[in-house]
Nucleic acid binder design. Structure first.
Length: 312
DNA sequence: CGTATTTGACCGGCGC
DNA sequence: GCGCCGGTCAAATACG
């Protein structure tokens, strides 16, 4: 695996022209400024995901073929500009990004075959049957990684994660932690590690997609009531890797994102990417889905008008 | 007592 | 075939 990873990294690095470090963050990298000073200990990651969702649209690439959203030629700095929103008044920022190469090298015309990976937890032992024809690497779920500047390793994203392993990382003094979504039916995993070069940078890599509503309110402490969207048949999520982003605006409520966001964010140009790369039904962790959008003015700032129209 | 974390062992893939 | 390494398992432990 590490080998494949390496290859991926190299490919990505080569293709995207990102630094070796960035490349080392696996397939798709989404970096963000993340420095909240005092509140960092229990930072609601979902806040960030709000951005992530938006920006992440660029990287949540189910497209196995030639990267459309993020041409390999796009240099990280360019992306970082987009990402370099003022998370906090004093936020520093890091960022670069690259596209999720998602080793799935399936035919571009073919839907993403990641469903087979749903139970990758066990798949590990059976994957040999599934994937690997001679000379062919095992297919993996698309991964979605991003770097955040934070002093806490495990960033709250609204989902519940159970840590199932930790390993020392080669060439890095920091261990890598492995988390799995506590939802039994959800095979999403994530890895969290610190950058060896910058200990303040946390690299989070998501693998798989949540097929359930967000179970918890990250900071509220109480589980969210069954959100309305639970009534909707959870879409099969075809061909999607990472699912944070749900660009069905009706699902976009940005629970407490709205309370933190500096309103005047320039989301317009970002939204272009969203729209362009919202191929399917995606679910956003939405712990407060039952809460009507009151902060409409803010959301208007956050959500591009064309998306809002859909909502209506 | 239920749940989450820790941690050493184990497994499989890959390069040599 | 062997060793390295990433990833996962699962028993022990900690915690609320």
């Amino acid at each position: 695996m590490m080998m494949e990873k390496r290859e991926e990294e190299m490919d990505v690095a080569a293709a995207a022209g990102v630094s070796p470090f960035a490349a080392d963050q696996i397939g798709g990298i989404f970096d963000m400024a993340f420095d909240r000073g005092a509140d960092k200990s229990s930072q609601g990651f979902l806040e960030l995901l709000g951005f992530q969702d938006l920006h992440g649209a660029f990287f949540d690439i189910p497209v196995p073929g030639p990267p459309v959203e993020v041409p390999p030629s796009v240099p990280p700095p360019e992306s970082s500009e987009v990402l370099n929103f003022p998370a906090t008044p004093n936020s520093s920022s890091i960022s670069s990004s690259s596209t999720e190469a998602a080793t799935d090298t399936a035919d571009p015309a073919k839907p993403h075959p990641e469903e087979e990976e749903e139970e990758q937890g066990k798949a590990k032992k059976t994957d040999s049957k599934e994937g690997k024809k001679k000379g062919q690497k095992r297919q993996r779920e698309p991964r979605f990684a991003f770097k955040t500047k934070s002093e806490v390793d495990h960033l709250e994203d609204g989902y519940r994660w159970r840590k199932y392993g930790q390993k020392a990382v080669k060439n890095s003094p920091f261990p890598r932690s492995y988390y799995r979504c506590t939802n039994a039916l959800c095979g999403v995993k994530k890895r969290v590690e610190r950058s060896s070069e910058d200990s303040t940078v946390v690299v989070t890599t998501y693998e798989g997609q949540h097929n359930h509503p967000c179970p918890v309110v990250p900071r509220g402490g109480h589980p969210a009531p069954p959100p309305p969207l639970a009534a909707e048949p959870p879409p099969p999520l075809p061909g999607l890797g990472f699912v944070f982003p749900s660009f069905q605006v009706k699902d976009l409520h940005f629970p407490y994102l709205t309370s933190y966001l500096p309103p005047p964010l320039d989301f317009q140009h970002v939204s272009t990417g969203i729209v362009a790369s919202a191929p399917g039904d995606r679910r956003l962790c939405n712990p407060t889905a039952d809460i009507p959008i009151r902060d409409h003015g803010l959301l208007q700032d956050l959500i591009p008008s064309d998306i809002r129209k859909k909502e209506e």
